[in-house]
Design a protein around this nucleic acid. Structure first.
Lengths: 225, 225
DNA sequence: AAGCTAACGTACTAGTTCGTCCATTAGTGG
DNA sequence: CCACTAATGGACGAACTAGTACGTTAGCTT
């Protein structure tokens, strides 16, 4: 009796428990950093106990790596759904930039985990071979767009795919990763809804403007109107 | 006897001790984060003892705030030496971007401290009134450049000074802050000397290209050659 | 329905880490 | 030259925290 041990609402559910641990752990690590995160605090925030964390993950560090792997895998999944092949180069790269913007905007905890992992010089990420091969697809896609753009004459700047990815990431990551210090220093919450659309557009515009070469070559010669 | 207690080379030197504590603490915090940094480890890396850290700074958190204040003050000092008033708008903003690039490139520990402070939601920075007023000068400078650029017709994009500062910071910060995860995922060390000059140019170019408006307005119409 | 195992909980330990107590020395003012 | 204070050092303690030993229960299999 007590609770009905129904086949769908059963109380012993390894999958659910594992998932909840990962979820709570992600928040906790993202909020306090690796060393600052408390295993006991995680346990207090879950519907299970600390014992279960060690039952499923063995150690704080292994839990952290599992959280990292899950977060990165989600990004890869999101990126793999992108279809910009049918677009003209300029619109393709703009769309990619805006999709990256949207994904980062929707997953601030992921950005924070990346920041934390960088504090630790990516020592955990490097050890996980599941993660170290995640860069390929995106740069491959960008390469294709860049080639098409140079062939059509739209792109005149000679940056490579990795450079362009860095630029897109930089613009999309900063407003999330540095929102708090920036907010304190400049009195503007970069993640506030009233800035979102403008910053999204800025991101696409900046990348397109750079690639289509309005920089040194044309400065002072192109006028508006 | 033993050591000559000369007036210049004396062994009891509060200033020197304080300075060394701050220096070592900055490295330790930047490397391990706030919670991950160990006071005992700092002491081991100094020519004095842990007792002195508490004698001068009272607590780990106060030491951390002192480190933050010192690092931010150095940036402000660097920024205040910038003189771009005499340059044309396009060159002024490019120069500002490149100077920011150079400063960040030369002070990676500062970037890491900022990352760490963002993990903690800038709770320490916000409490220090010495720091919260540091944003004014830069945005003031950018405002002037933007006004001049619009007056001359060089700038057609309607971003404000804070937006432009965000963009410059994003491009300059990312390659330092995310160098480790980026390196592991894409096989490129963003801080390697062979990429430095190109990225510096990219940064200036991107900002100028964005402001001079080669984005949506002109895409597909401006061809190279 | 009995037994077996995966899933779970409690209470505890060993080690670490921030911070302090008390003693000592360098340098300076009278 | 003596006393007084700023500066320094070493050893210690109290609290916290990752990880574990041991016991219990749910639910499936046969």
């Amino acid at each position: 009796m007590s609770q009905s041990p129904a086949p769908n609402g059963r109380r012993r559910d390894a999958e659910r428990t594992r998932a909840e641990i990962l979820e709570v752990a992600q928040r906790e690590f993202a909020r306090h950093g690796y060393a600052g995160a408390r295993v006991d605090e995680m346990a207090a925030l879950m519907r299970t106990t600390k014992r279960m964390i060690y039952y499923y993950f063995g150690a704080k560090e292994k839990l952290y790596i599992a959280v990292l792997e899950k977060a990165y895998t989600e990004v890869r999944t999101a990126e793999s759904t992108i279809d910009v092949q049918h677009l003209a180069p300029v619109e393709a790269i703009r769309t990619l930039a805006e999709l990256t913007f949207d994904h980062h905007d929707a997953h601030p905890d992921f950005i924070k985990l990346v920041s934390i992992e960088n504090i630790h010089q990516a020592e955990h990420l490097r050890r996980s071979e599941m993660l170290t091969n995640l860069g390929g697809p995106v740069t491959g896609l960008i390469s294709q767009i860049l080639e098409a753009g140079r062939a059509s004459g739209d792109f005149v700047t000679d940056a490579d795919a990795v450079d362009v990815h860095m630029m897109i990431s930089a613009l999309c990551v900063f407003r999330i990763a540095n929102q708090y210090t920036f907010g304190a220093l400049f009195g503007r919450d970069l993640t506030a809804p009233e800035h979102r659309a403008r910053h999204r557009e800025m991101t696409g515009e900046a990348v397109v403007a750079y690639l289509t070469g309005n920089g040194r070559r044309l400065s002072g010669q192109v006028k508006a109107g």
